[in-house]
Design a protein around this nucleic acid. Sequence first.
DNA 1: TGACAATGACTGACCGGTCAGTCATATTGA
DNA 2: TCAATATGACTGACCGGTCAGTCATTGTCA
Lengths: 239, 239
Amino acid sequence: MPKKTVERRGLDKARGTQGPGGRGVRSAAAPAGSSPARTPSRAERAADRRAAIIEAAFDTFIAEGYAATRLDDVAKRAGVAKGTIYLHFKDKQALFEELVRNAIVPLASRLAAPPPATGSVRALLENFADTFVREVTMTRRGAIVRLVIAEGPRFPAIADFYYREVVSRGMAGMRALIELGIARGEIHESGLKDFPQIVIAPAMVAVIWQGLFARHAPLDATAMLRVHLDLIFGERRAA
Amino acid sequence: MPKKTVERRGLDKARGTQGPGGRGVRSAAAPAGSSPARTPSRAERAADRRAAIIEAAFDTFIAEGYAATRLDDVAKRAGVAKGTIYLHFKDKQALFEELVRNAIVPLASRLAAPPPATGSVRALLENFADTFVREVTMTRRGAIVRLVIAEGPRFPAIADFYYREVVSRGMAGMRALIELGIARGEIHESGLKDFPQIVIAPAMVAVIWQGLFARHAPLDATAMLRVHLDLIFGERRAA
DNA sequence: TGACAATGACTGACCGGTCAGTCATATTGA
DNA sequence: TCAATATGACTGACCGGTCAGTCATTGTCA
């Protein structure tokens, strides 16, 4: 039971005029100023489209959530026909997973970064906190985290992936940092090494807060994380 | 373009045989032992059904999320016909909001509880933490919190309600407690009073963790919260 | 070099299935 | 008796996924 090929012919003929349609985009990245940016080969164009689809899906999933996202909309936003999505991704879920992967892997790499040996642990964590606020809390990456929290329970594959790539790595890195802090005498609460989550927790809350309550009560995430570090490193306020 | 009323007649006649069906439940709470538990009046029955619908919706929304929840399933689980749902709730969204309201108000009341003047602040918070783990983290209430985080961005009404009823109250209560702790010299980090979120954060993380990663790495929430309190109250471990 | 064939990226109408919400009908409690 | 309740078949809209067909690009050969 394929198509009703015959019946359609008339219509197909009709639309034949507008033909490939969207493909007119081609000229876009033509001459700009970069070094090797000419003749977008077929493969390059395909890669661009794939990227455009992921980008569009990103925005749409964030705005609508998984279930409410229509692939028609993603296609439209990406300037692509719906069928094209299926040339690059098996189905909606595969697209979603790829998107999370795409947005998160670079983040994970930074988190599980090499343990720099210079400077105090406190300074390292302060730097980490600032980076986190600047690059996650205040950006679309934060929305990804919220998305994972939101859809994770229904997408074990996502939750698994996220745990493996982000959480377990981040936890290991944080634990190492905590142990260093304890060894150096900067951190006195030795129990902390068993629960790196505690160090991360306020950052997570900041992300969630940003998504849900920001307009009710704006949160100075940087200041909050600083106070939390004061707590961890046993500093005392001037006052 | 209403119905094709006429065509339906035949079928309607046919099903007439099985009639009201589900209503057989009625006899349930008949003779047991309580004092005034006879003759379920019409109003009482209606209230019961409403409660059953909310209960069923609760389970379903938690398991499936908002968009993926089918009202047919909710109806079936509640032992009610789909149309009955619409006798009690305007539409799916109203049901969802009512459900969150319903599950959250008692929680909010407990959080914004009267500030008991006895015992140390530390003891109060320890008690609070234990209660939280026992009654939120480990139960369906935790799922409600996750549900709000998940669907909140798409349901401003829910987020607003939750902020007003739970977050702002809880924050106020926590701030009062922190200030008491500072005044009594139990808490040294005075900056904490500006960010009650810090005290709550690990509890939130525990709830999220429970929903996403519990099977990868079970989390001893009670122990974690205890360490966090050690941090806040500047205790030092024995070791 | 130029013409022609092969390729496969892309398109979008279409299909099948799903589901929120409706309403004609049936069933009571008062 | 009859208004309040309850039922569930039905509808219309919507959406994920398919695929026959189109044509720009690439490869090949004279």
